[in-house]
Simulated assay, not measured.
Amino acid sequence: MQYQQNFFYLCKTPLSAEGPEHVEIITRAENSEDFPRVFQEFEELRSHAFNEDKIYSVVRADDIYELVRTNTEESAKEIAYEKAEQEIITNLQHRVMQDGDANAKGILKEVYDITE
């Protein structure tokens, strides 16, 4: 077994993402001392999706942010997309049901093969 150093990656997955290649790495913690900076940025970026009770609501998110621990950017993108995929679907379905959002409906149909 060969040791590989892991980092905390802050990733942004847009609601229109079709796979890991659309995930953006915003930053990473270079060491344990750097983690608070990355975590604070994570909390700030997703703060718009909190409701009045300070509870995170995926249906309010404009993008999905994930904090993942792994050894490469490629792996971070794959993990972030996998974690975000269900939240993206939920968000898009909510937009279709609440607002009749044609763009969200198109993404659901083309990317996830969901028609209702």
Rank of each mutant, 00 (worst) to 15 (best):
F7V: 00
Y81H: 14
N51E: 00
S57W: 01
M1K: 10
G19P: 11
E21A: 13
S47I: 06
N91S: 08
E110N: 14
R37N: 13
E87G: 15
H22G: 13
P14I: 07
D34Y: 01
T90H: 12
Q40S: 06
N51Q: 04
K12N: 07
E21K: 08
L15M: 06
E66I: 02
F42D: 01
R28L: 08
P14S: 07
Q40I: 02
K77A: 06
K12A: 08
E18Q: 12
E24A: 11
S16L: 10
Y3L: 04
H22A: 13
A29N: 02
I55V: 15
E21S: 07
E43S: 04
I89M: 09
A76V: 04
R60I: 03
G106I: 14
K109Y: 13
R60M: 10
A49K: 06
Q5M: 01
Y65T: 01
R37W: 01
F39I: 04
G106D: 11
P14G: 09
D113G: 13
N6K: 14
A104V: 04
T70W: 06
V59M: 05
L67M: 11
G106A: 15
S75K: 13
V111K: 10
N51A: 02
I89P: 07
V68D: 08
V38D: 01
K54S: 12
Q2P: 08
F8I: 01
Y81C: 06
I88G: 09
L10I: 04
S75M: 00
E21D: 15
Y112A: 14
F35N: 07
K109V: 09
D113M: 12
E44R: 06
H94A: 10
Y65P: 05
A80E: 12
G19Q: 08
E21H: 04
K105W: 11
R46I: 00
G100P: 10
D99T: 14
E73I: 05
A49C: 09
R37H: 06
E43D: 07
T70H: 02
E44Y: 03
T72M: 01
Q93V: 09
Y65W: 03
H94I: 06
I114L: 09
S16A: 10
D53V: 06
E73L: 01
E116P: 00
I89Y: 08
E43K: 03
K54M: 09
V68G: 04
Q4K: 11
S75C: 05
S47L: 04
E44G: 02
K83N: 13
S57N: 06
F39M: 06
Q40G: 06
I55R: 04
S47N: 07
Y3V: 03
